[in-house]
Computed example of a mutant assay.
Amino acid sequence: MKRLLGSAAIIALTLLLAACGNGGETDESPADQSEGQPAGENEQMDNASENDGGTDQTTGANDEEATTSSQSYGFTQFSVEADIDGTRDAVEVEYEQENDTTEASYQDENAGIQLKGDEAMEELDSIFTEFTFDESTPEEEVAQEVAQAFNIPEDAEEFEVEIEFDDQNELEYERN
């Protein structure tokens, strides 16, 4: 009887430890973890990540990925690139909201900003919510508002803005 109780206790402890895992700590990088992923899906996502820089949010493998955002800015994609004072891509902003994931990065060499993921979204949210333009605003006005928001001077060597609005209309503005 003691042997049976001892074996049952060992089995119960083993099951408890297996169910608890290792307390959430792991030696694996987030890209190596496959919790909740069907076999083969991680490899597929890794290949997609290598091809286009995107990953499924559940892996956490992409630093540019932010949490799901329910905020609507009137656009699903937004990018800015500006060359200032001889610095290529002195300002570079990327935002893409697709299905349940949002990817964002914000770099401003002059201001010392190098943000990705949630940190970038926090900063960009404060800028995006101040925008007053929509898909019917003339390109010049949109470009002027974007330049002002990101402190891009009139004499920037190159300035590009690309926006895909919620209604799928696209705006592309380039000033050389």
Rank of each mutant, 00 (worst) to 15 (best):
S29T: 12
S49M: 14
E41D: 12
E28D: 08
D32V: 01
T26R: 01
D100Y: 08
S49R: 09
A31M: 07
A66E: 00
G74K: 03
V93I: 08
T58I: 15
S69R: 06
Q57H: 14
Q97D: 10
D56C: 08
F75D: 02
D52S: 14
E35I: 11
D46H: 07
T67A: 05
E81W: 12
E41T: 14
S34N: 04
T67M: 06
N62V: 13
Q33R: 09
A66I: 06
A90S: 04
Q44Y: 06
R88H: 06
M45P: 00
G86P: 00
G53C: 13
N22F: 12
Q71W: 08
Q33N: 04
Q71A: 15
N22T: 06
Q71D: 13
D52A: 13
G21C: 03
A90N: 01
N22Q: 15
V80Q: 01
F78D: 02
N47A: 13
D56W: 08
T67Y: 09
S69E: 09
E81C: 02
A31V: 14
N99T: 04
G36R: 05
G74W: 03
A90H: 00
E92Q: 07
D85V: 11
E41L: 07
P38S: 10
F75Q: 05
S79L: 13
G60D: 02
E25A: 12
G40D: 03
S34C: 12
V80T: 03
S72D: 08
E35P: 01
A39L: 05
G24W: 12
Q33K: 13
E50L: 08
T68I: 07
T55M: 04
G86W: 00
N47H: 05
A61K: 02
S70A: 06
D27N: 14
G74Y: 04
P38L: 11
R88M: 09
A48K: 08
V91R: 01
Q77R: 15
D52N: 14
A90P: 00
E98W: 13
T59F: 12
G40R: 08
S72E: 12
D27A: 09
N42K: 10
T58D: 13
A39R: 06
D89P: 00
E35D: 07
A39V: 08
D100T: 14
V80L: 07
S72I: 10
D85W: 00
G24K: 03
E28K: 08
Q33M: 11
D56R: 10
R88S: 05
G86E: 01
N62H: 11
V80C: 01
E96N: 08
D89F: 10
F78A: 10
S34V: 13
R88P: 00
T101S: 12
T55Q: 02
E96D: 07
G74Q: 02
Q57K: 11
N42W: 09
D27M: 12
D32K: 07
D27T: 11
G53H: 11
E41A: 14
N99K: 14
T102C: 05
E64S: 11
P30H: 03
D63S: 09
Y73P: 02
Y73W: 04
